[in-house]
Every structure is written in structure tokens, then in C-alpha cells.
Amino acid sequence: METEMNYGKDYHSLPVTSMRNGEGIEIRPDLYQLTVQIVNVAFIGDPERGEWVLVDAGMPHRANDIIEAAEERFGIGNPPRAIVLTHGHFDHVGSIIECIGHWNVDVWAHEAELPYLTGQKSYMPPDPTVDSGLVAKLSPWFPNEPIQLVNRVHKLPKDGTIPFLPGWKWLLTEGHTPGHISLFHESTRALIAGDAFVTVKQESIYKVFIQDLEINGPPKYFTSDWEAAQASVRKLAKLDPTLAITGHGKPVEGEVLTNGLRRLLDNFELLALPN
């Protein structure tokens, strides 16, 4: 009997949100950020040209939010050419099965992330002791079991290219997860960082709600390898990106981004590492 796509048994909605829930921001004509509760997804593609790619798939049970925003931007009956995943944590794949079904689209992720996307391996349990913030304390309630995408998920090409995204490259930015990637547009130095770093203090429910811009390391409660996480932030800073969409928080660009990454690296132990 053929295996069907499914989420982990622990997948469920979460009653946490931000004041930016549902907000879409056109950062430039071919780059759009949509906030789904407390996480961001990205649309890459110019509506004038039609073709586009979805990066990440938001929180559980929020596929309609993503589909409606995509149809408003690109038109009804214009599916993405692909879904690219920065990683497989529940808040980045929470609506992916519904998106695959609605659009009949395939998924690409790093080879090291595939066990978490094909039912083979669970992520480490969230650690509530990493920070005093309420989101961190609530994290044991967050899903961490693998999802099963069967043959709809494929490993990204080893040469760093991304299917259907000419001009973009993927970079391994491990640490938050073993196969976490970030996406970089070489000619414009635009960056989609995923959770390699974020622009909000993700452990604090107050900061998550108000979304004050504050460049921080990856969410502490789910990060498995801090030495690799620090090296990944350093790798992204060396690219000198002009703008960044992160998995959580507002988009950031220019000197605010450059200075924020420098501050994060100079104070990584204080700003990023768990208590």
C-alpha cells in the first residue's frame, strides 16, 4: 500500500500570533513577505512575469492564508513552480501538505533535512530552559515529529542552484537544524535567511506580538548545534547582504542589517546562546 502524505501525530494549531499576522510586504517587485501568525513565508517572482516560487509553508492549518495571498498577488490558477524549504520545523511546514494538494507542486530541501520530511526522524524536543521568555516556556507544546511528504520532496542540487530560481543560490546554514539553508540572490545580495538569524526576540511572547526589530540568533528552544549556528551567521554576514527576510520578524535592509549582524557576531554568547 502506497504511503500517503501526513503530518506528525503531534501537529496542532497554536493560539499565538503577532500584530503583523496576515500582513504582506512587497520588499521589491520580485520579493514579497507574508506573515502567518508568528512566522514568515516568502514569494519569489515578479507578478508581471507570472512565474514564482514559495519559500516555506507557515503554521499548521493556515494554508488558506498563504493560498489567498498568493492568488491576490499572482492570480487564480497560477501555482508556484516549486516550494523551497529553509528547514522542516513545524512552523515552516505546517501547511505544506494542503499547499502541495491545492497546487500540485513539488518541494525541495537540503539532503540532510529529508529524514525530517519523510517520516524517518524527529527533531530534538524543544528545550524550555533556554530562556525565561514565555514562548520558550511554551515550547514543549510545539510539534517536533517528522512529516511525511513521500515522493513530493526532493533534495536540492549539490551545485547550490535552486530549481526554477535562476540567479538564486542556496547555502547550508546548519545549526538550527542539520539541513537548514538560506537563499541568496547574488546580483542584488538579497537574502532569505530562514531561522539562521531572526529579527525579533523569538523567545519572548511580548516581543513576538509587537514585532520590534531586533537582530537575534536562531530561536533558542529548537537550535541543536550552537557552534554551527554561529558559523552560519558569520557565513551570511560575509555575504554583505543588502536586505534580508528572516523566518521571524520584520524584513531588514541597509545599515540596520549590516550593523545588526556585526553586533550579533560580536556579542553572540550574550545575545544568542541559551541561558
Score class of each variant (00 low, 15 high):
residue 244 A to S: 13
residue 208 V to D: 02
residue 202 Q to T: 14
residue 193 A to S: 08
residue 183 L to E: 09
residue 232 S to G: 06
residue 176 H to N: 13
residue 235 K to M: 09
residue 258 T to L: 06
residue 175 G to C: 05
residue 201 K to Y: 15
residue 181 I to Q: 07
residue 253 E to F: 07
residue 206 Y to A: 13
residue 175 G to I: 06
residue 250 K to I: 12
residue 202 Q to D: 15
residue 194 G to N: 10
residue 232 S to C: 08
residue 262 R to G: 06
residue 236 L to R: 04
residue 193 A to E: 01
residue 215 I to C: 04
residue 250 K to W: 13
residue 268 F to E: 09
residue 179 G to Y: 12
residue 235 K to G: 06
residue 220 K to V: 12
residue 235 K to A: 01
residue 177 T to M: 08
residue 215 I to W: 11
residue 254 G to P: 00
residue 245 I to Y: 01
residue 251 P to N: 04
residue 223 T to W: 13
residue 187 S to V: 09
residue 202 Q to N: 11
residue 189 R to E: 08
residue 178 P to A: 04
residue 217 G to W: 12
residue 197 F to N: 14
residue 205 I to L: 15
residue 172 L to R: 07
residue 248 H to I: 06
residue 217 G to N: 07
residue 229 A to H: 02
residue 232 S to N: 03
residue 260 G to V: 07
residue 226 W to E: 03
residue 189 R to A: 15
residue 174 E to P: 05
residue 230 Q to S: 02
residue 215 I to N: 01
residue 223 T to P: 11
residue 194 G to M: 00
residue 189 R to T: 07
residue 198 V to S: 07
residue 266 D to T: 06
residue 186 E to P: 08
residue 213 L to T: 15
residue 267 N to K: 03
residue 225 D to E: 04
residue 207 K to C: 14
residue 194 G to S: 09
residue 203 E to K: 04
residue 205 I to T: 11
residue 196 A to D: 12
residue 187 S to E: 15
residue 188 T to V: 11
residue 268 F to H: 08
residue 220 K to C: 13
residue 192 I to Y: 04
residue 179 G to V: 05
residue 247 G to N: 00
residue 256 V to P: 03
residue 257 L to I: 09
residue 177 T to G: 10
residue 219 P to L: 07
residue 193 A to F: 00
residue 200 V to D: 00
residue 215 I to S: 09
residue 237 A to I: 02
residue 188 T to H: 09
residue 221 Y to R: 15
residue 172 L to T: 04
residue 199 T to F: 03
residue 194 G to K: 05
residue 221 Y to V: 06
residue 266 D to K: 00
residue 204 S to T: 02
residue 198 V to D: 01
residue 262 R to A: 13
